[in-house]
Structure formats: structure tokens, C-alpha cells
Simulated scan of single mutants.
Amino acid sequence: MNSHPVDPVLVDVARAARRVVVFSGAGMSAESGVPTFRDAQTGLWAQFDPTELATPEAWDRDSGLVWAWYQWRTGLVRRVQPHAGHRAVADWASRTQLSVVTQNVDDLHERAGSDVVAHLHGSLFSPRCSRCGAAHPTDGGVDTEPTGPLAPPSCESCGGAVRPGVVWFGEALPEDAWTRAVAAVETCDLMVVVGTSAVVHPAAELPILAARTGATVVEINPEATDLSRHISHTWRTTAATGLPALVDAIGGDR
């Protein structure tokens, strides 16, 4: 039993909810030890601005360098584990209709047992051909930090270079993922926004959409964000602490 106190009002709201969306961001993954976008800049990568490695232009300029950086990031993710917050979401989903929408490109929700409705910014574990878009099997990244470029694999369908399966700066979100996310948000009665500053658009528009369509929106974040003033409830705690406490609190009477 989790002893972290939960606002009784929040418990009542969560207990009554029949369609829940959990919307997660980088703060949730960071608690598992996943380096944030900029924190993954060590060794060779310290000389690069990450925004210069995560663009179509960077890929066109030096695909081997970009592939090496993402292989390093993929390996970092593979070596960490889901935390109690990830597991609590999966537990909650076993009791009620719950959809996970995430801005994170890792697979921690899935490894904790959740089905993810939408990876809005793609996934490190879904590489695809840069030419024809065909999916390519992931090899799980590399264990040691590359000291230079790594040649991307070739597409099994057309021979094109395989690229990371993430959304780069300047690219649109995957249309199918965005459609699934909007559908889940428009029909939910509770949205829990956890570990995100909600400043990256268009993903940041989803909590506002939920509020406009009548859902209760709860923010779990240790710090105030731009979203805080627009929503129903804010809880200044972290994902790994708050989510297990909330799920424990609502669990007995469902």
C-alpha cells in the first residue's frame, strides 16, 4: 500500500472516471533514468547541439552521424526499467478503460504492460526506411557510445537507408497517431497529464481539448507549467510517486 497522501477530491474524480487518458512526457521517463533530449550529450555528442542531430537536414548531411546518435540513445533506453508509475498505469488500465498517449519515444509504457494508443513523436524502437517508409526490425541500439558515424542499415524492401522512427524538428506528427490521440481525448472524462511541461505543439493542445470537451484534467508534475492555470487539479509530485498512490487510493472500491 502506498502511503503518499492523495487529495480526496482527486480520488473521487478518478474513481468515478470511466474513460481515462494518461498523457505522459519526458519527466516520466527521466525517473527511470532515461536521459532527456539534451542530457544524452556526452563524449562525441557533447560537441553537437541535439537540435542539429534531430532534423531532416542533419540526416541529409550525415546520415551515419545521426544514426549513431540514435543508436546510442536507443541503447540507453534499453538498459533502464519502467518505474512504479509506469506499472501503476498498466494496473489502472486493467480495471477501467484507459488510453496511454505519450510524447516519449521509449518503450517503457509497453514494458510495464500498457498498450500505447499513440506515440505522438514516434519511437526509437520503430525504425523505418527513409525512402519507402517500410518498417524495419530494431536491433535495440548499441551498448557502448559510438566514437563516430555508423552506417544505417538498408531497407529490405527497396534498399534505401533506414532512419530512426522518431519525429524530427520540422516534421509533422504521424497522422494516424494524432488521429488516435484526438479520438481518445475527445471521449475521455478524465485526463491525467504527467511529466510534461506541455509546451511542445501540437501535442500541448490535447489537455486543452480535453478540458473544452468536458473532461476533468489533472496535472501531476513537481513544478508548475504553462498548463497549470488552465486545468482542474494540479498535484506537485512525480509520476513514480503520484501515480501508484492514486491507483492504490482508487483501487479498493472499483
Rank of each mutant, 00 (worst) to 15 (best):
R254Y: 12
V199K: 11
T147A: 14
L98A: 05
D176Q: 06
Y70C: 07
P207C: 15
D60K: 13
L65Y: 01
P153M: 09
W69D: 02
S157D: 12
A245Y: 08
T51A: 11
F23K: 04
R111L: 03
Q47A: 14
D107W: 11
A54Q: 03
V194M: 01
R87M: 04
A17H: 00
V11E: 13
I250N: 10
V167I: 13
F169D: 01
H86W: 07
M1L: 13
L227C: 11
P50Q: 05
A112R: 04
A181Y: 08
R163A: 05
R163D: 00
C155E: 10
A161N: 09
V22P: 08
G242V: 02
R236M: 14
E57P: 11
V21R: 05
M28V: 14
T74A: 08
W59E: 06
H136A: 10
Q103W: 02
V192T: 15
W92R: 00
I220T: 11
L190K: 06
L65T: 08
V22I: 05
C158G: 04
V182C: 09
P164R: 07
G85V: 10
V218Y: 02
W67M: 02
W59Y: 15
D107R: 14
C155S: 12
A181E: 10
A46Q: 07
H136V: 01
T74G: 07
